[in-house]
Design a protein around this nucleic acid. Structure first.
Lengths: 151, 151
DNA sequence: GTTTATGCAAAACATTTGCATAGTC
DNA sequence: GACTATGCAAATGTTTTGCATAAAC
């Protein structure tokens, strides 16, 4: 019996198929769980939410999704690596240190700046990894509301 | 018998002492080995170079050095976390993907740019992590020399 | 039917912890 | 002498691997 999954998850499966990988029940389940996450996650998070899948399957499929660019890694401030859905190519994340949500940062003009800075050091730029930490709009609003209530 | 260590290593020990930690023989040895590294390293690298020290001591002292800011973490392009001597406060690294050397990037004006970009997303910036990958001057020169030789 | 993916158990790593002993201040 | 650090062994946690079985194409 094929479980029903949502459009986003379906898209992950389709992309896998286009790349020559099979669309299996465990992968459908994983795709759905990943599509449902509202923040970055770890392999362990997936495992908890997919207790019927084997350890190895989770690690193998997760690696596959990263390799095919559908899931990207996120570096937390403390050095932990988590994962999250990746919709596009190269991008950066605005990570909320309070709620863990993340926004994508596209078309950031850091590239030019890095190019110049690198050149000044005799360095030939080939790539970079940037994570930005702070508090998202929602978390800031919550605090403001609390302040008002206490005033 | 106190082993002789160089000035850089001595400085690490001194700083530890200033922060209330003891200057012990294992820490002297570790400080010297770390000061000698010419590229980023892992706990395992230290372990190989300090076979007489216990595993736990290496992990504990390394953590201590990171916490006190004398060693910093470096994120490799593949997501691996390595370590290296850290001389200053906040800074970034130009990591050569060929020889593994790294240059520090100071006074990089990325901060302003991020501030603006974050604000545009309703995001209150609190920090960031940036690693830059490419090829260092030395590695580029080697290639040019080879090309000339083959011409 | 052929090929790929899964699940399990075991193996391989990486890091942490408890605790008795040794070293530093 | 009091307190901190070390080393060992064991525990913990994470990821990988081999291989027989099952599922997909």
């Amino acid at each position: 019996m094929r479980k029903r999954i949502n459009a986003l998850a379906e898209q992950l499966l389709d992309t896998l198929e286009q790349k020559g990988y099979r669309s299996t029940e465990p992968r459908r389940a994983m795709a759905q769980v990943i599509a449902n996450q509202d923040k970055h996650f770890t392999a362990e998070d997936l495992r908890k939410q997919l207790p019927s899948l084997g350890r190895a399957t989770i690690f193998r499929s997760l690696k596959l999704l990263v390799e095919t660019g559908m899931v990207c890694r996120v570096l937390l401030e403390d050095g932990d690596l988590h994962y999250q859905l990746s919709h596009r190519g190269h991008h950066h994340h605005l990570l909320c240190v309070e709620c863990g949500s993340s926004q994508d940062l596209l078309g950031c003009d850091i590239e030019d700046l890095l190019q110049q800075t690198s050149a000044r050091h005799g360095f030939e730029l080939s790539g970079h990894w940037l994570e930005v930490y702070g508090r998202c709009n929602a978390c800031r609003n919550v605090e403001q509301t609390v302040e008002l209530a206490n005033a």
